[in-house]
Design a protein around this nucleic acid. Structure first.
Lengths: 347, 347
DNA sequence: GGTTCAGATGAGAACGTTATCACCACATCG
DNA sequence: CGATGTGGTGATAACGTTCTCATCTGAACC
């Protein structure tokens, strides 16, 4: 910059003003500086600027796995909203490992991000609260943490799941199973905080829906820790092979549904004749398989966008109470649910 | 840091050495500094460090759309390799807009990324060459640019496509269609550089395969500018409704395939009885639809990982000639291709 | 016992910006 | 005409680090 200033015949202060767009500069000085900068191939150093201003115009984004379609869409939403406001996005994956989440947050904080959007995984969220307290706003995406004062953008997983079960019950089903990832057993945490809120809420919605229908022992048909297609396939196969197999299945996300569909097919059963299926997430393929799958559609991209918007509000100094914002899900009826054909429905 | 130094009773220089892990510090001084830092809640400012060292330990990643499964996987690969080496990833989407690509590169350069991984879209690549020349290494991901000296990691799209067509020809098909996105018509660029190399190479592979089989006017069955499921669905419907409809279809990626499957189903045809299908990309759903889809599988995540590795080599000063690295595709035979049943196969 | 050398330390410069302040010229106003 | 702004400018401090250099200590070596 000093060289640009020299070439343009002004002080570095004036050159800085012309290049940085602050203060006031005469039109002629500005053009001279700009010309000199172009001639010399000058490129601004945003890092040095950030050191001075204390703002990096960057937000940190921490998700479990960008390669999961839900998060990919959410990241896209965050990215779009961020860029529209002149912010860049620093991305980190955790693979649901609390240790990686914590270290990712530490690194992003050291890089002086102006704010953080986190889809928190299961451990102690103290690092998130500390970040917020020390002046870096945090917005939770897709997952809430009880007893923590942070903005949160998500859907009503409990209610959506309860309704899905009610829908299956209305179709006459009584032996309704749920396959889900998330809720791990081998986990050290207070009971209320096990697993990820998304998984917990969906399981509780399932249990509530089952209870409301007076179903006996719904836990008998609940399979957790099946978060990948492969695990889900095995869990579903297990369910189908059991005594009094379920006549309907609720899959907690599209990857779980993928494994479930495979297992059902391999077991020689057909959807929806032998077993009905409802899944979370309107993945692209759910509309193209035979039969098409009835799903609870989540506005993944909009969730990301809203999270970014809320974060940007906080960054610009909004001081209201932390709020939990719920975006609506859409229940899309397709062809994977049929009335229960099983005579033993009373079982 | 000055306060930490004061608390620990050492100079800022020594505190810096203890905190920054450079130079040499006595064990006792180190422990005193670390204790003081912890007590004061000191958090290092990596931005200031980057200003001094000239290295930000950050790489910029520019792709068309993170919400596309191929790129999501590639980004994951880049991210993993980057983190393993202590680098962070700054992400940008272009939506295939050359203007956005250029401005994204400009912003990332201003943030002093140590290197760039770009899946280049169609316009003039001068900004990429300039970045490389001015000392920020650039690696091209998934797409090459002719006549440009940049490292590139991709697959052999031409050969994979040629083989896919040959496979269909071997099954007896003569009216083979291709639906693809990418190659736009309304584009201002020298003929050889229209569209994105991936799309061009696949089209040329298709044409070569057709030529080798002696097929007449293969262009008649070529539909470009159908990069989204919706556009692809329309293009496929159009093909099916035409005179002498194709008996086999080659879809240039999984999203195109999705639209094609929908169109085929809506037209009342079945795969593979009426029409065979081969698609690029082993999307998760291609193994679960009926019938399962025969695909050319790309190692998307490995492409990202290799791109990051090559970039890191350049960053650490490797000076060899730029190279183009091809990762192998895998042709996965499933159930969407059947021998041609059409009597008029000579047409 | 002097020379050499490595380890440890501090003072202060350096990195490339923005922030602060003082100053000037000039217009505006009463 | 003097007081009061206001836009433009430059010198220099400031940001929070790392880098450079000089100095000191003590051990090892012949």
């Amino acid at each position: 910059m000093a060289e640009v200033a020299r070439t343009a015949g002004v002080s570095t202060a004036t050159a800085g003003r012309a290049l940085g767009g602050y203060g006031s500069v005469s039109p002629e000085a500005r053009t001279r500086v700009l010309a000199a900068a172009k001639e010399l191939g000058y490129r601004r150093n945003d890092l040095a600027r950030a050191v001075i201003t204390g703002r990096s115009d960057t937000i940190g984004l921490v998700v479990a796995d960008i390669d999961n379609p839900f998060f990919a869409a959410a990241v896209r939403g965050v990215s779009d909203a961020a860029r529209a406001a002149g912010y860049e996005v620093l991305l980190a994956n955790t693979d649901e490992d609390p240790h990686r989440e914590r270290s990712a947050v530490d690194v992003l904080l050291a890089r002086r991000v102006d704010g953080l959007i986190v889809a928190p995984t299961w451990g102690d969220p103290e690092h998130l609260q500390r970040a917020q307290r020390s002046g870096t706003p945090v917005v939770l995406l897709d997952r809430r943490i009880e007893g923590v004062d942070l903005d949160t953008v998500m859907v009503d997983n409990f209610e959506a799941s309860r309704r899905a079960v009610a829908y299956l019950v209305d179709a006459g089903h009584r032996r309704i199973a749920m396959v889900t990832g998330g809720t791990r057993r081998s986990q050290v945490a207070p009971p209320g905080q096990r697993g990820v809120s998304t998984g917990r809420d969906r399981v509780e919605g399932f249990l509530r829906g089952a209870a409301e229908a007076g179903l006996q022992e719904p836990e008998r048909y609940l399979r957790t820790a099946a978060g990948t297609p492969d695990l889900s396939q095995r869990a579903t196969a297990d369910l189908l092979a059991g005594h009094e197999p379920p006549t309907a299945l609720f899959a907690s996300d599209s990857r779980v549904a993928l494994g479930a569909v495979k297992a059902i097919r391999q077991a020689g059963r057909t959807i929806p004749d032998h077993i009905s299926l409802v899944a979370f997430d309107d993945a692209d393929w759910t509309g193209v398989v035979t039969p098409t799958i009835t799903v609870i559609s989540q506005p993944a991209q909009a969730l990301g966008r809203r999270a970014a918007e809320m974060l940007l509000e906080r960054i610009s100094g909004a001081q209201e109470e932390p709020r939990e914002e719920l975006l609506p899900t859409v229940f899309i009826e397709r062809d994977s649910v049929a009335p229960c054909a099983d005579d033993t429905r009373g079982a």
